[in-house]
Design a protein around this nucleic acid. Structure first.
Length: 926
DNA sequence: GCAAGGTC
């Protein structure tokens, strides 16, 4: 049986080229599941045997990381929680075709060779391929091909020296991805949500993002602007000597360049004036070259297009990609500035000989032979940017950029410009002056490269020992000048220098800070900080945080390198950086007023908010509490589906909280007293309920304590029972009546007399957050008037309200809607343990699909009506077929007594005919 | 609605 190998490259171009080299042009091609990623097939000798090779490709990263569902929405959690929120890595939806191709092809293969780019990201992308393939074939043999360029020798060498993928390098990328996501999302949400509310007139629609590359890029612009603003001009003085002759004019510059003291300069100037005769002390002539341009890589193209053509980096890349797709130029995303020896430069130059502007130059170049200047960088994949086909059909910016690429290519393949530089040094009153002249002897590349100037400068002829009387000796005054604002090319150079972003992303980061209104661009192409950008940088600077400095990113880069070298563990780096940024985040929250103040300089006074100082979370209702466990302020807010919540704003770090159910319409804190936890803070809250949600108990007052963390339902059930005159229960099933007693006494006995008659409940220890796992919400202390139901939730007591034999009877039912737990209260009345035992007895089994099985009752008329059975609790579409009768024997023909029926359970009314027993879809009237 | 990194 044939030994098949699946080969995967990072992009289709690379796959095609590697396949062509390995097959010596003899490969076949077929379509894959992704239209951009073809499948190439050929045979190759590998592992000492003839192998059937299948080569396909990706389009960069196959997977993306994202927070799990509960954290994706902006208001779903505190931004602080994003530092620890669970994340997942999965195949991006737009990469589904590629995933399917891999899954399909790996099934028929015996080994996998990863041919992704040989850099850090490439290694990580390789592991994404491995993960997808291992899901299909867990034991597949995996190799890594390492190559420095896509040429026959390099590819052959890679095949002969196949190794294993480097997990550490891939880990480094995992760390970078996770940190970028967590930090970016946390700060972006925090800044945006807060500042939109603080400055609604200006920022209500503004997204205020933070990114580890965006902010340093902004920082460069602001720093240069600040340097200019802070610049103090200094006056300087210098001496200039001129000499005019019939052969030409010479201007001599002072060797001291300039002095900042007028008197000193004046003394020396006076000396020259008193003894003005100049003596030529030295005269030299030497050859001078002006170097031709390097081959174009992406960054160089962006910088030069910005400087020479005034086309910005983003636009340059857009046009370049279009030219590439039309086949006019080579791939424009490359870090290589070395032409590979395999590239046929002569043919490329030949194509350009037909042009009316540079055709003649190209023809001459052919006769001389191409001699490209070579740089030092290679990305192992793509050659420098060069024209691949002649065209004269382009217009506008496309034409300009194409012409620039062609002229750069021809200039690079030509020769340096040559000239003779003459330097003349003279002495006047022991002060030295020099003048320089230039005589160009061969323009060479300059003939085809109009973007650079090199001019002749003719000097009169001087010989050493000559003397002459200067035409003028002047003392001139000048002022030092501030640096100029950054151009886009300057900005890209700074980003490159400090390791901010990559070649492929520089333009995107610049574009992003423009889009966010952090910076603006003047008509002359210079970058100025915008009000928002300036305010953000000033605000963070005022907090003493170096958010806009490149150091933080540089530190991460250093640690990532250590992961690659095995000097540091991935988890350690991740933990350290998360902790560091989390600390920065907390500091930002604590000092966030600095940010407000910085922006207030530009946008006016901010709108006042009720806010938490740590999280700046806006609070909708008063007042603000102090968290008893961490001293952070807590807030009460209305949640979408859970009614009201009082909770620590540092959740989940601090788990102090209390929830109130959704039938509460309004809540108002009236006091801060606790009968049980004094001197701990406790809140007494007055609730209003939706009409009908509880028996006629409107404006019920409820005292709860955050420390004790008790639930509203408990007091509700108590009050309901107390007012319904049901038989007195065992006092142990009642909640803290003693506490109410104390409260009532303090408030002058406002509570009903029923509560006052209850005996005091034993004191329970206050809530101790330190005893809880910070990742889990603490379970509330269990009050005595509920039982645990089978799904481990509380089953609370309710009263049958419907007319009939069971009216007024009480029953336990699970708080959870999905759970069908039901227990008559009088079946175990007076004995809490019995209640619990009964509940436990009725705990559902685990069904076959490991889901809970719940008890249901047969509704349908027939011999089994009212009989109970276990079945899977999943929704019908997903449920397994687990089924088990609850009773061992079949029931008699008589229906079971009424107390075995569940009151008010699932009337199954269709809502059309108002008749129970069928669903809306099956209604005969429909 | 968030990052940065691949790539088409």
């Amino acid at each position: 049986m044939a030994f098949r190998v699946l080969n995967v490259a990072e992009k289709n171009d690379a796959a095609r080229e590697i396949a062509r080299i390995m097959s010596r042009g003899g490969n076949s091609r077929r379509e894959g599941m992704s239209r951009y990623n073809k499948i190439y097939e050929y045979e190759y000798n590998l592992f000492g045997r003839r192998c059937e090779m299948t080569m396909t490709s990706l389009s960069g990263h196959l997977m993306e990381i994202e927070f799990v569902v509960g954290y994706q929405k902006w208001h779903s959690c505190q931004p602080l929680a994003l530092f620890t929120a669970p994340i997942e890595k999965k195949v991006s939806s737009n990469m589904d075709g590629i995933r399917k191709t891999l899954e399909k092809e790996i099934r028929r293969c015996n080994a996998l060779i990863v041919w992704t780019d040989c850099d850090r990201e490439g290694e990580n992308i390789g592991y994404e391929v491995i993960e997808v393939c291992r899901r299909i074939k867990p034991r597949i043999d995996i190799y890594r091909a390492r190559f420095s360029e896509i040429t026959a020798p390099s590819i052959t060498r890679a095949c002969a020296t196949l190794g294993r993928p480097d997990e550490r390098t891939s880990f480094a990328v995992d760390v970078r991805q996770e940190l970028d996501l967590r930090i970016g999302a946390a700060f972006t949400r925090f800044q945006t949500l807060r500042l939109q509310k603080r400055f609604p007139e200006v920022l209500s629609e503004q997204l205020i993002s933070y990114g580890s590359c965006q902010f340093p890029t902004l920082g460069f612009v602001v720093q240069r602007y600040n340097e200019i603003v802070a610049f103090v001009a200094e006056t300087f003085f210098k001496i200039k000597v001129k000499h005019s002759t019939p052969d030409g004019e010479a201007e001599f510059n002072w060797k001291r360049v300039r002095l900042f003291y007028r008197l000193a300069c004046a003394v020396l100037h006076q000396g020259c004036l008193e003894n003005p005769m100049a003596t030529v002390v030295n005269q030299t002539s030497k050859p001078k070259s002006k170097w031709r341009p390097l081959p174009l890589d992406t960054v160089e193209l962006e910088k030069l297009a910005s400087r020479k053509l005034r086309i910005n980096a983003k636009e340059t890349m857009r046009i370049a990609e279009k030219l590439y797709n039309q086949g006019f130029i080579s791939y424009p995303r490359t870090e290589t500035n070395i032409f590979p020896s395999s590239l046929d430069l002569t043919n490329l130059i030949q194509q350009q000989t037909v042009d009316e502007n540079w055709g003649q130059f190209s023809a001459n170049l052919l006769t001389e032979g191409a001699n490209p200047r070579q740089g030092r960088k290679t990305d192992n994949a793509h050659p420098p940017i060069h024209p691949t086909k002649f065209t004269a059909t382009l217009n506008g910016q496309e034409k300009r950029l194409y012409e620039f690429i062609v002229r750069s290519f021809l200039a690079c393949c030509s020769k340096d410009a040559q000239g003779i530089e003459t330097t003349v040094e003279i002495d006047i009153a022991r002060e030295k002056f020099t003048a320089k002249g230039l005589s160009i002897t061969a323009k060479n590349y300059l003939d085809v490269y109009p973007y650079e100037k090199w001019c002749d400068k003719t000097l009169p002829i001087y010989r050493t020992g000559d003397t002459f009387m200067p035409t003028s000796i002047d003392m001139v005054e000048g002022e030092t000048e501030p640096p100029s604002l950054l151009t886009e090319a300057d900005l890209i150079a700074l980003m490159e220098k400090h390791g901010i972003g990559t070649d492929a992303t520089h333009a995107e980061h610049i574009e992003k800070i423009k889009a966010r209104n952090y910076v603006g661009v003047q008509p002359d192409g210079k970058f100025v900080p915008g009000e928002l950008g300036m305010g953000l940088v000033q605000g963070y600077d005022a907090m003493g945080l170096e958010m806009s400095q490149p150091h933080l990113r540089a530190e991460l880069e250093r640690d990532l390198k250590k992961i690659c070298l095995g000097q540091k563990q991935k988890d350690v780096v991740l933990r350290e950086h998360i902790e560091k940024y989390k600390e920065v985040f907390v500091q930002t929250c604590e000092q966030v007023n600095q940010l407000d103040q910085a922006l207030a300089q530009f946008f006016g006074e901010p709108v006042q908010l009720n806010e938490d100082p740590v999280t700046s979370q806006v609070i909708n209702s008063q007042p603000v509490f102090t968290c008893p466990s961490c001293q952070t302020q807590m807030c009460m807010k209305k949640t979408q589906d859970k009614g009201f919540m009082i909770g620590c704003m540092r959740y989940p770090e601090c788990t102090s909280r209390a929830f109130f159910p959704s039938f509460v319409l309004d809540a108002q804190v009236t006091e801060r007293v606790c009968s049980r936890c004094i001197p701990r803070p406790v809140y007494k809250i007055k609730f209003q309920f939706k009409r009908g949600s509880v028996p006629p108990m409107m404006d019920l007052e409820y005292c709860t304590c955050i420390l004790c963390d008790e639930y509203l339902q408990e007091i509700l059930s108590f009050r309901i029972n107390a007012s319904s005159s049901v038989t007195q229960r065992n006092t142990s099933t009642r909640r803290d009546n003693g506490r109410n007693n104390e409260n009532n006494n303090r408030r002058g006995g406002q509570m009903s007399s029923t509560t006052q008659s209850q005996p005091r409940r034993p004191q329970r220890p206050p809530f101790q957050p330190d005893n809880h796992d910070s990742n889990k919400r603490p379970r509330p202390p269990r009050p005595e008037n509920y039982v645990l139901c089978g799904c481990d939730q509380r089953a609370i007591i309710r009263t049958v309200r419907k007319e009939g034999v069971n009216k007024g009877r009480e029953f336990y039912t699970c708080e959870k809607r999905e759970c069908d737990f039901f227990l008559w209260a009088d079946e175990g009345r007076g004995d809490d343990q019995t209640n619990q035992n009964q509940a436990n007895d009725r705990r559902p089994n685990l069904c076959q699909c490991r889901q809970q099985a719940v008890v249901r009752t047969v509704q349908k008329a027939g011999p089994n009506q009212h009989r109970q059975f276990y079945c899977c609790s999943k929704p019908s579409g997903q449920a397994c077929k687990f089924f088990e009768w609850l009773d061992s024997e079949r029931p008699t023909s008589q229906p079971p007594p009424a107390q075995n029926q569940r009151p008010n359970r699932k009337p199954r009314c269709c809502g059309i005919c108002r008749q129970p027993g069928h669903t809306r879809n099956k209604c005969p009237r429909k």
